[in-house]
Amino acid sequence: MSIQHFRVALIPFFAAFCLPVFAHPETLVKVKDAEDQLGARVGYIELDLNSGKILESFRPEERFPMMSTFKVLLCGAVLSRVDAGQEQLGRRIHYSQNDLVEYSPVTEKHLTDGMTVRELCSAAITMSDNTAANLLLTTIGGPKELTAFLHNMGDHVTRLDRWEPELNEAIPNDERDTTMPAAMATTLRKLLTGELLTLASRQQLIDWMEADKVAGPLLRSALPAGWFIADKSGAGERGSRGIIAALGPDGKPSRIVVIYTTGSQATMDERNRQIAEIGASLIKHW
């Protein structure tokens, strides 16, 4: 067993022997301040990774656009098919120029040779490549099948209805392509620590998230040296922004954090800054 596999296998073990965790309302004060600064709703939840206990939450059962955070769930569904012998990570998928959609920095470079399922998941999570996500959605049967996968996990809230990039439209009061912070946090925890996926697939999923290259201005910008984070960000229309993450000190994750916002007129930089400040408060009061 590799060191990384050992780390993920012992996530519940280490967490069980940690000192009790206590909620700190100071972080919620910052979440509410972010709402004021952005002029928009902000949803927040913080779960203990081992027990699933909610440590703090704000608007945990209000719907927010998922945006690209759905790509972690998508690759979880792909990995479940791999575990069941219905898919192979090494299978190569070929596609054409007509398949390319807006923001496809990886797939646009491989029109000639195609990409493997493993490479597509890596591109979808680490670079948020939209064509990679659409190609992977095709392998599982489309958005409705991802929703069905989530329902089978016990998540009857999260739903995907459309493809990239239309799913980022974020129309107010439109339930399409949305989740709730509580539902997303619980589902992410199941994917990373539950028995739904094999140990190898859980490790692969967290490795992809740990290698995320496009979430630097968010929670990662607030992390002290030595902290662990595996995350996936999302951005959408109407001032929408979000991030889902597993993080913790001492090089291992111990909490799940989900943050979503929508309806702001603020710039992307300002949305990023507010999420980073929430992260800084979380870490300060850990």
Results as ranks from 00 to 15, higher is better:
1 M>I: 07
2 S>W: 09
2 S>H: 15
2 S>R: 09
2 S>Q: 13
4 Q>E: 14
5 H>L: 09
5 H>R: 08
7 R>K: 10
7 R>Y: 09
7 R>T: 14
8 V>H: 14
9 A>S: 15
10 L>F: 09
10 L>G: 08
11 I>L: 08
12 P>H: 13
12 P>T: 12
14 F>R: 01
14 F>A: 10
15 A>E: 04
16 A>R: 04
19 L>F: 15
19 L>E: 08
21 V>H: 05
22 F>P: 05
22 F>R: 10
24 H>E: 12
25 P>Y: 09
25 P>C: 09
27 T>L: 08
27 T>N: 05
27 T>K: 04
28 L>I: 03
28 L>T: 09
29 V>R: 09
29 V>Q: 15
29 V>L: 12
31 V>E: 01
32 K>F: 08
33 D>P: 01
35 E>L: 02
35 E>T: 03
35 E>G: 05
36 D>E: 14
38 L>G: 07
39 G>E: 15
39 G>A: 14
40 A>R: 03
40 A>C: 08
41 R>D: 07
42 V>S: 03
43 G>N: 00
43 G>C: 04
43 G>L: 00
43 G>D: 00
43 G>K: 00
44 Y>F: 12
46 E>Q: 12
47 L>D: 01
47 L>R: 03
48 D>G: 06
48 D>A: 08
49 L>K: 04
49 L>E: 03
49 L>P: 05
50 N>P: 14
51 S>E: 13
53 K>N: 15
54 I>S: 08
54 I>T: 12
55 L>D: 04
55 L>W: 07
56 E>M: 08
56 E>P: 01
57 S>V: 10
58 F>W: 14
59 R>C: 04
60 P>G: 15
60 P>S: 13
61 E>L: 12
62 E>R: 06
62 E>D: 10
63 R>P: 07
63 R>S: 08
63 R>M: 07
65 P>N: 04
66 M>N: 02
67 M>A: 15
67 M>E: 05
67 M>W: 01
68 S>C: 01
69 T>Q: 01
69 T>M: 03
71 K>S: 00
71 K>H: 00
72 V>N: 01
73 L>D: 04
74 L>E: 04
74 L>D: 00
75 C>N: 02
76 G>W: 05
78 V>E: 03
78 V>K: 02
79 L>Q: 03
80 S>A: 11
80 S>F: 13
80 S>V: 11
81 R>H: 10
83 D>T: 05
84 A>I: 11
86 Q>P: 05
86 Q>C: 10
87 E>A: 07
88 Q>C: 10
88 Q>D: 13
88 Q>P: 05
89 L>D: 05
89 L>Q: 05
90 G>A: 13
90 G>H: 12
90 G>D: 14
91 R>C: 04
91 R>T: 08
91 R>V: 05
92 R>P: 08
92 R>E: 08
93 I>A: 04
93 I>W: 03
93 I>V: 14
93 I>S: 03
95 Y>A: 04
95 Y>R: 01
96 S>T: 13
96 S>W: 12
97 Q>R: 15
97 Q>S: 14
98 N>V: 12
98 N>M: 11
99 D>H: 09
101 V>C: 10
102 E>S: 11
102 E>T: 12
104 S>Q: 02
105 P>M: 06
105 P>R: 05
106 V>K: 07
107 T>H: 01
108 E>N: 10
109 K>S: 14
109 K>T: 13
110 H>A: 08
111 L>F: 09
112 T>K: 15
112 T>Y: 15
113 D>I: 07
113 D>P: 07
115 M>T: 05
118 R>M: 10
121 C>A: 08
121 C>Y: 00
121 C>R: 00
122 S>C: 08
122 S>A: 12
123 A>S: 09
126 T>M: 09
128 S>A: 00
130 N>H: 00
133 A>E: 00
133 A>L: 00
134 N>H: 04
136 L>F: 00
136 L>S: 02
137 L>D: 01
138 T>L: 10
140 I>S: 05
140 I>C: 06
140 I>Q: 06
142 G>V: 02
143 P>Y: 03
144 K>Q: 13
147 T>H: 07
147 T>D: 09
149 F>T: 08
149 F>Q: 07
149 F>P: 01
150 L>N: 05
151 H>G: 13
151 H>V: 12
151 H>I: 10
153 M>N: 10
153 M>C: 15
156 H>R: 13
158 T>L: 01
161 D>L: 03
162 R>W: 02
165 P>N: 08
165 P>K: 07
166 E>T: 11
167 L>G: 05
169 E>I: 10
169 E>L: 13
169 E>K: 13
172 P>E: 13
172 P>Y: 11
173 N>D: 15
173 N>G: 14
174 D>Y: 03
174 D>V: 04
175 E>I: 14
176 R>M: 10
176 R>A: 08
178 T>R: 02
179 T>C: 05
181 P>N: 01
182 A>Y: 14
182 A>P: 06
184 M>V: 09
186 T>L: 15
186 T>A: 14
186 T>E: 15
189 R>V: 09
189 R>H: 13
190 K>P: 03
191 L>W: 05
192 L>V: 10
192 L>F: 12
193 T>K: 15
194 G>F: 09
194 G>W: 08
196 L>Y: 15
197 L>T: 05
198 T>V: 07
201 S>D: 02
201 S>V: 04
201 S>W: 03
203 Q>I: 11
203 Q>V: 13
203 Q>M: 14
204 Q>D: 08
204 Q>V: 11
205 L>A: 03
206 I>C: 13
206 I>R: 12
206 I>S: 12
207 D>V: 11
207 D>K: 12
209 M>R: 00
210 E>D: 09
211 A>S: 13
211 A>F: 09
212 D>P: 04
212 D>E: 04
213 K>G: 08
213 K>E: 09
214 V>N: 07
214 V>K: 08
216 G>P: 05
216 G>Y: 08
219 L>A: 03
220 R>K: 06
221 S>I: 11
221 S>Q: 13
221 S>E: 10
222 A>Q: 14
222 A>N: 14
222 A>M: 12
223 L>E: 02
225 A>K: 15
226 G>K: 10
227 W>P: 00
228 F>V: 07
228 F>C: 07
228 F>Y: 13
229 I>E: 02
230 A>P: 00
230 A>H: 01
232 K>G: 00
232 K>W: 00
234 G>N: 01
234 G>M: 05
235 A>R: 02
235 A>H: 02
235 A>L: 06
236 G>M: 02
237 E>T: 11
238 R>K: 13
240 S>M: 03
242 G>E: 01
243 I>N: 02
245 A>M: 04
246 A>Q: 05
246 A>C: 12
247 L>I: 11
247 L>A: 05
248 G>D: 02
251 G>M: 10
252 K>D: 09
253 P>N: 08
253 P>Q: 08
254 S>Q: 15
255 R>A: 04
255 R>G: 02
255 R>Q: 03
255 R>C: 03
256 I>C: 06
256 I>E: 02
256 I>M: 07
259 I>L: 10
260 Y>S: 02
261 T>H: 06
261 T>G: 03
262 T>H: 14
262 T>N: 10
263 G>L: 06
264 S>F: 04
265 Q>P: 11
265 Q>K: 15
266 A>H: 10
266 A>S: 13
267 T>F: 07
267 T>K: 12
268 M>Q: 08
268 M>T: 08
269 D>I: 13
270 E>F: 12
270 E>C: 12
270 E>H: 10
271 R>G: 08
277 E>F: 08
277 E>L: 11
278 I>C: 04
278 I>F: 04
279 G>S: 10
279 G>V: 05
280 A>P: 01
280 A>D: 14
280 A>W: 11
281 S>P: 03
281 S>A: 15
282 L>A: 09
282 L>M: 14
282 L>G: 03
283 I>K: 05
284 K>Q: 13
285 H>A: 09
